Computed example of a mutant assay.
Amino acid sequence: MRVAVVHEWLASHAGSEKVVEQILQIYPDADLFSLVDFLSPDQRYFIGNRSVQTSFIQRLPWAKRIFRQYLPLMPLAVEQFDLSAYDVVISSNHAVAKGVLTAPHQLHISYVHTPIRYAWDLQHQYLRQAGLERGIKGGITRLILHYLRLWDTASAHRVDKFVANSQFIAKRIWRAYRRPAQVIYPPVDMSRFDWQQPREEFYLTVSRFVPYKRVDLTVQAFNQLGLPLVVIGDGSDWRRIKAMAGPTIRLLGQQPDAVVTDHMQRCKGFIFPAEEDFGITPVEAQAAGAPVIAFGRGGVAETVIHGKTGVLFSEQTVDSLVQAIKSFEMGMYELNRDTLRQQAEQFSIHCFQNQLRNCIEQTYTAFLQGDPLE
């Protein structure tokens, strides 16, 4: 098979890029397409230091700094990729990658991290957090999101088979496109973690500082409890979070993987208050032997077993998180490190590669034979 992999943007090595990394491990001869490529030389290892075919957005003014603001142009940009030389196209989609144009003899499989969330069920939350609920800018933004929804729905018909990163996202795919999706969980590098390290008396959270991640909720809860908390991450909410952090909270900013790994292996518990599509850090925490205290909605409800590998709280509020931490502190749950590690093993790189390879090869065989793909 001649394989093309299409991703939205290459600017970091985060969750969706780790999926791309493993797809390229499965198909090392695949060509890679991305709307923009701003990886630094020391970040290019995960794509095998290969060249990337980019779109016209790469050359637009200030694209490196503000490429996300060119979102209205991205549907047009992704449609300009010429993929006619390939038998199989694999799109890694959380915005527009699934909208590539393919021919009837080409198989298009889309691995969906999420349907474009700020155009669908999170539109009102996005507008509220961006201060765009009213006014001319708000009206223009609503019009753009309306256009994106129309395009997003239409482009779903270009995909032959959907793969979702969780049951939660499979339901979102059905809600948005009325298409079923096979679930293959993202890969976690289990080899990074030693789950048998002695635990210390601090809690840990690792997150980008953006509103929907709810780092503020964690900080407020630990201010109230007076317990030690280490926060790793950075983002647009940094100043606000720093201003509210009390004396028991240490903000370390962005840190390399080695520092994150070390803290996960030593922390008493890992805090995760966001509603995420999958949430790779709670799985990494379990791989490191750290119990997870998390908001029990989204992908984390599929990766953390309440009472066995963590504590799930039911409301995204300070009070609900405080009660969950108190119950954990009181020893109401016996959370065994071997059980934590066994749970995390289900999401290993080996499992991901086997499942995705089998999915693609079986789907391609059925496609060539003219059998139904869903």
Rank of each mutant, 00 (worst) to 15 (best):
I66Y: 13
G310E: 02
V112Y: 08
L35S: 07
Q22M: 12
V20E: 06
T303L: 04
Q346P: 11
M244G: 04
A170H: 09
Q197A: 11
F328S: 08
G135P: 05
A287L: 05
Q22A: 12
T363F: 04
L107H: 02
L229M: 11
A30H: 09
K137R: 15
I325K: 07
Q25W: 10
Q220E: 15
I26W: 08
P282F: 13
I23W: 02
V6H: 07
V260I: 14
R239N: 12
K171D: 14
R149D: 01
R65T: 14
D257H: 06
Y118W: 13
N223E: 12
V6G: 01
A288L: 02
E345W: 00
I23T: 13
L321W: 11
A290E: 01
W151I: 15
D216K: 09
A243Y: 03
V210E: 11
A14K: 15
D37T: 05
F295R: 07
F328G: 05
R134G: 01
V20C: 06
I116G: 13
P211G: 08
Y86Q: 03
H124I: 00
M1C: 07
E21L: 03
F270G: 10
F193P: 00
L373Q: 09
L148Q: 09
D160E: 03
E17T: 10
R149V: 07
L312N: 04
E21P: 00
G15I: 03
P72H: 03
F313M: 03
L148F: 08
A245D: 09
A30I: 13
P180V: 06
Y203W: 12
V215M: 12
E133N: 13
T141K: 12
E334Q: 15
I26R: 12
M74S: 01
P41H: 05
P187K: 01
D189H: 14
K242N: 13
S34T: 08
L321F: 12
Q355V: 01
D257E: 15
Q323Y: 00
G370N: 11
R341E: 05
Q125C: 02
L122D: 14
D371F: 04
V36N: 00
D277M: 03
T248G: 05
A176L: 01
F46V: 00
Q22H: 14
Y364N: 02
L71G: 06
Y177G: 02
A181Y: 10
D189C: 11
W238C: 06
I271Y: 10
V322G: 00
H350A: 15
Q69I: 02
E329G: 00
K326G: 02
Q286D: 03
V96W: 11
D194N: 15
M1Q: 10
T261L: 04
L225D: 06
R179W: 01
V283E: 09
D189K: 13
L252G: 01
W62I: 11
H146L: 14
F222M: 11
Q53A: 12
Q80F: 02
F272T: 02
I26Q: 08
R239Q: 15
K242C: 12
R134I: 03
I305V: 15
V206C: 11
P187H: 01
F295L: 06
M74W: 03
Q53Y: 08
L227W: 14
Q362A: 08
K161S: 05
Q346D: 14
W195C: 09
F209S: 01
K161Q: 08
T261N: 07
A274R: 02
T309D: 03
R266D: 07
M244D: 00
L101R: 15
S110T: 07
A221F: 09
P211T: 10
T153D: 04
P256C: 09
I23C: 08
A290C: 06
